[in-house]
């Protein structure tokens, strides 16, 4: 059995370590510190923690002011409220002025579960990805969360990191280091590229194993750095395999599927399927059941891969490129 870690818990623990290393780090929350896990920092550094109450607009504005005052603010709440309620505050100050604010939002996606559609952020990545200057990161597991949060503390500029509520399987080991604008190849394959972010990375790896049992070879990418996206790795993968499936716990519009479509359609169009929510809001239920309901399982990724391969074989799209012509920059 694979070990599991929760990305939000790893965020909270990493913040405490970073708090010792960076005296300028301050943390703000909007009455959800027990859920976002910033309560760990609050306990360790009470003078550098500010609970702003149920007031997300003020949360982001105060974080912006702290950044102008030379601090390194980490602002946390649920992804829905951070990016939805306070989008314009983020846009007008944090992104527009390129301020050194780290927005680390928990409870991304439908695996929030029982709280239902009002609390399940399925559009946060779209809302953050569209903003100039903003870096958008979606860690897939504990080690990647630790590496990204650590990297964000040292990077000067606005960063959005989405964590999840549910513990997820560990994929990386502690030697993993995050590099801005770089994706990871988690598995090599010839026939199709499966691209995941967040907990869908593990689903893509599982789908690749299922496809292998049927004689199909899938390359698996984690494009956890959603912005800036590793377009070289993406285009190279599309050329090598000739077919792409994206998988995200988010609407298929505006997030990973959109980002991949935008780049491939201009650079190397191939048959493609996008796994994610399709023009619907979330609902209450057990997280595992919701993943199944919204078509976010390894079986769904596998089925999409087979569909896209059938389409490639029918000759629609550009398909596989000449490998000899590839020079990866």
């Amino acid at each position: 059995m694979t070990s599991k870690e929760s990305t939000r818990v790893e965020y909270g623990k990493t913040l405490v370590k970073l708090g010792e290393e960076y005296p300028d780090i301050v943390v703000l929350d909007a009455d959800l510190s027990g859920s976002t896990q910033t309560h760990l920092f609050a306990k360790a550094f009470p003078d550098r923690f500010f609970n702003m109450g149920v007031a997300e607009q003020d949360l982001m504005g105060t974080a912006a002011g702290l950044a102008v005052g030379g601090k390194i603010p980490f602002a946390s709440t649920f992804a829905m409220f951070a990016t939805g309620r306070a989008w314009e505050q983020i846009r007008q100050t944090i992104a527009y002025a390129n301020l050194n604010v780290k927005i680390v939002a928990s409870h991304g996606g439908v695996t929030v579960g029982e709280d239902g559609g009002s609390h399940q952020a399925i559009e946060d990545l779209a809302l953050m990805r569209i903003l100039p200057n903003m870096v958008v990161l979606v860690p897939a597991d504990g080690p990647q969360t630790r590496a990204m949060v650590r990297w964000a503390a040292g990077y000067r500029g606005p960063v959005y990191i989405r964590t999840g509520r549910m513990p997820v399987p560990v994929i990386y080991d502690d030697s993993y280091r995050f590099e801005l604008g770089r994706g990871s190849i988690l598995r090599e394959g010839r026939d199709v590229t499966l691209i995941g972010i967040g907990l869908m990375v593990h689903a893509c790896l599982e789908a690749a194993r299922l496809l292998e049992a049927e004689g199909l070879s899938a390359r698996v990418l984690n494009l956890a750095c959603l912005k800036p996206l590793d377009w070289e790795l993406l285009v190279d993968s599309a050329r090598r395999t000739g077919a792409v499936v994206t998988a995200e716990e988010h609407l298929v519009t505006g997030g990973l599927g959109s980002a991949v479509s935008e780049i491939l359609s201009e650079n190397w169009p191939v048959p493609m399927r996008r796994i994610g929510l399709k023009d619907v809001f979330g609902i209450s239920g057990k997280p595992e059941l919701l993943l199944k309901h919204f078509g976010l399982t390894a079986d769904d990724v596998k089925a999409a891969a087979k569909q896209v391969l059938a389409r490639e074989n029918r000759g629609s799209g550009r398909g596989r490129g000449e490998l000899s012509a590839i020079s990866k920059g």
Binding site: D58, M60, G61, T62, A64, P73, Q89, T93, A97
Partner: peptide, 30 residues
């Protein structure tokens, strides 16, 4: 980003007091 002496963009109303609070907290901490 382009005007010396301006601390932060404003113009979308209602946001400057939160920013001033952040500056006041930063000054106190330092």
């Amino acid at each position: 980003s382009c005007t010396p002496g301006v601390e932060i963009p404003t113009g979308s109303l209602g946001q400057g007091l939160s920013i001033a609070n952040g500056l006041a907290l930063a000054a106190r901490l330092s």
